[in-house]
């Protein structure tokens, strides 16, 4: 079974430009273009968030699609399920807007759609090979990769650092 890909965050690379938030909202608009999206109703929503942490931290956060997803178990209307790609999805027809998922989400990345009275979150851009936020990130702070490959790159990097330290 092939490894599913996740959106990983390299917080040290984020410059806080918010390009990911724009790209996300545009991808979730009707027109899928920036110039079209800005005049649509309801206003397209971004599902990615960039938090500021004193004094200079910028942290992009997006649904982790947890393997053991608290939101999925907490949803009283059975609206949240996992699809064949491992993506946790909210069935908006079933969602009753009770916000239980919001209460249990450890990352705080579920939003409230005021016009539609539904919860919304990252859907990993089903129409795209690479999620829009990852494509839009100019600094590589967002990475779309499998756990194996991402970890291997981290190990590679740390190994080189370790050797350099040892050998001076």
């Amino acid at each position: 079974m092939s490894q599913p890909k996740e959106i990983f965050v390299k917080t040290h690379r984020c410059v806080g430009c918010l390009s990911c938030t724009i790209a996300c909202a545009v991808e979730h608009s009707k027109s899928k273009t920036l110039f079209g999206a800005i005049s649509e109703t309801p206003v397209p929503k971004s599902r990615v968030y960039v938090q500021w942490v004193e004094p200079d931290g910028k942290v992009p956060l997006v649904c982790r699609h947890c393997e053991d997803a608290p939101c999925m178990y907490a949803c009283i209307s059975g609206a949240i399920s996992r699809d064949e790609n491992g993506v946790v999805i909210t069935d908006t027809d079933k969602c009753i807007g009770c916000w239980t998922c919001v209460m249990v989400c450890p990352y705080g990345v579920i939003g409230r759609h005021l016009e539609e009275h539904k919860a919304y979150r990252c859907d990993r851009c089903p129409d795209r090979e690479i999620p829009a936020c990852v494509s839009a990130c100019p600094t590589g702070a967002l990475v779309y990769d499998t756990v194996d490959s991402f970890s291997a790159k981290v190990r590679n990097h740390v190994s080189r650092e370790l050797l350099r330290a040892e050998r001076g």
């Binding site: 918010l18 938030t21 909202a25 800005i38 206003v43 397209p44 971004s46």
Partner: peptide, 10 residues
């Protein structure tokens, strides 16, 4: 500064 183009966010 940058202004969010989407009404209810940012």
């Amino acid at each position: 500064c940058r202004i969010s183009p989407f009404d209810d966010q940012g």
